[in-house]
Write a protein that binds this DNA or RNA. Structure first.
Lengths: 224, 224, 224, 224
DNA sequence: TATGAATGAGAGTTCATTCAT
DNA sequence: CATGAATGAACTCTCATTCAT
């Protein structure tokens, strides 16, 4: 409509043709928020649309259906987490130190974006079979494998218990993280909006506990 | 159960007039199964009824609504788990040994009743707010507290790291258990129906990892 | 229950074999009450049974179904009202005086049994077609005809307007009664539980208004 | 939108963009009809939808639920009646003449829209508590009050019996109307589809009877 | 792109009625 | 007579998805 006025007289750069449309972003953002608040089944497409300040049907313009929308939310969040894991994994430091970094990163994100964490932690692994079988499951397996590789490296470095199955080690580390985050999200372990100090304390505690699950008894707890 | 005493020495068929109606049991049993297979939102009341071989309306004779039915399933399963934790907690052994027992018990149950575990592990903390706020949440908190008490005792006994927040310790132990069970349930860590040996191996690994999360570095790993 | 003690030592009259069973009465009574409170569609058979302190199925022992039960309630209440109209009609007094008596009787009953009146007034003429076509409709027509006969007689006696269709006259008299009772039942015209004086005042007002609808302009208002 | 300025100089079909959606109207219209035929509890939302030639869900697009739909039907019909009463009340004529006009209006509407009258007369005061407590009850009270004001004016004008409680007078006038309409609706007083003459005769009879309920004995029956 | 009216299958819940005991 | 567990049809309401504009 506005186009008819002055098509492109000024030769402005073509308005965002390549970039992700603004409204698509708004929908994704709204979906994350609504999803975190109400859970997978509690949120309706209409909620997402109105939260995004967008018309009902537009959601279906950008996403095939509700599942795909939410899977996109998942993937995007995980992508960030996986990116962090990969970056840390390729950086310096012992396996123990790297695992500690991963844990600290996750807890930091909780501070910044509790909604995202809530979605990742509470909703991801227990959503409908459509998702469970889809890319989300693969993503979850990928995270496990990435951590398992860190564990295996830690074993080679002599810090971690050698007889531990690296996958079990990874599951244990992530389990410690998950359950403590769940405790934070639900207010069981901290205030729902923990203070900076409270968060630091939790970081320390969670890192210690998680590393304890994999470290060899005598190893120096260097990841602290 | 009370039958064993000397109820009907004359060999009469136990009247069971007072006992829980047979069909109510059937419904609960069916609900557990269907729920485990399809998840909370994937299972319909009709599924439960037909799985139980019972008329639709009978479900509503015994349970106010779907939520209450599933909450009953939860509660019943948790009751068993909590009973075990309590029994172990009141029995002999160091805190580490007791925690190991709790973990082994949970893994044993997985062998016997994977459906029940699946429900407890995958569905519990992520169900509708009705439940999240209701007895299920309280039950979950209770479990955490029971384990936290064990952790605190282990600290007094000198085996566990003294600076660890017992609640974080409990969350960590349960997190290790949860995530590994989840890995088993989803087939990531073991075959969906693990063999006896596979299970034994997992028990050992999980116990070691979970205790590692709380044991003091130098402590003898007595819970093994 | 207490009966078991001394069954019939005193040679009491055989316990009500011919008479209406006690529980049948209880059910009818409960039905009237519940029906008055909640209306035809708001009351369930279960409500009636529990109000009567009687088992569910027993209702179906005495009544074919819900409709028949409620039709019985109607009929019984109307029978009382019709009986009164007949008695008055066959007694002494001018038509105007008799109509006044009928109105006063109805208002007196409201004092004693507001529930019954509520059922007759608010529920009767507007219930499902099953009833509308059944005996209730006939009963209602009968009442109208009985009053219409009084009106016709009043016309012959010279008190009532001669050009008035007696059926319209009856409908008008009953309409004045009905709407004022409705106003009392709903608390629009009086307190829900009117005092003796309030009731007397209403009687006077309603009688005057109702007779006004049928009396010839110059006639002495003898029905007062 | 800017288009509306000079809408159809060119003979374009009026756009009606702002107007009430056509289908909403269709639903309301269908609801009135179905409701009149089958009564509040006898009609299902599905009936209304199919009568309106509209998809099931659309009913819930425009109305929160069945109750709200039917309340809308009520309100709309009453609004017409109340509008007429107000217009008459603010117009010329004695109180008696005005009341006569109100009655004639109601009887005329019966000719045009018996369904509407049926709903207003037979269903209104006996619908679920939701409605009884809601706007419908208030509306009914409003009508009573409007008529009561007319009655009070008639008393000041010296035509109506001065000792009559205006509310009772209003209830009586409306009672006469209601019961006679009920008699017409149910076929007790006239043919279900009365002829023009039959209707005129009823108008005369009802007006005479209703005014008789409130007129002072000697007053000239000017409302005729 | 963008809108939101329109669709309709699906699920939960109620409750009159039956029936074995 | 009396009980209440058992049945299942009927109905309301939800919400993902489509489509005309």
């Amino acid at each position: 409509m506005a186009r008819q006025r002055n098509p492109q007289e000024e030769g402005q750069p073509a308005p965002l043709h390549e970039a992700e449309p603004e409204k698509r972003r708004a929908i994704l953002h709204a979906a994350l928020k609504v999803f975190a608040q109400r859970g997978y089944h509690g949120c309706r497409v209409a909620d997402v649309a109105s939260e995004a300040g967008v018309a009902y049907g537009l959601v279906y313009h950008y996403f095939r259906n509700k599942d795909e929308l939410l899977e996109s939310v998942f993937d995007e969040q995980w992508k960030i987490f996986i990116g962090a894991i990969r970056a840390i994994s390729e950086g310096p430091g012992s396996a123990a130190e790297q695992i500690a970094s991963v844990l600290r990163f996750a807890l930091d994100v909780f501070r910044t974006a509790p909604a995202a964490v809530r979605v990742l932690i509470l909703e991801v692994p227990r959503t409908p079979d459509v998702l469970r079988a889809g890319s989300t499951r693969q993503t979850f397996e990928l995270v496990t494998r990435l951590v398992a590789e860190m564990v295996a490296r830690g074993q080679r470095e002599g810090d971690f218990r050698p007889e531990l199955d690296p996958l079990v080690g990874a599951a244990s580390v992530l389990g410690v993280l998950d359950m403590n985050l769940a405790g934070m999200v639900t207010g069981l372990l901290t205030a729902p909006q923990p203070s900076e100090e409270e968060l630091e304390r939790m970081k320390h505690q969670v890192v210690t506990a998680a590393l304890g699950a994999v470290l060899a008894p005598g190893a120096s707890r260097s990841g602290r």
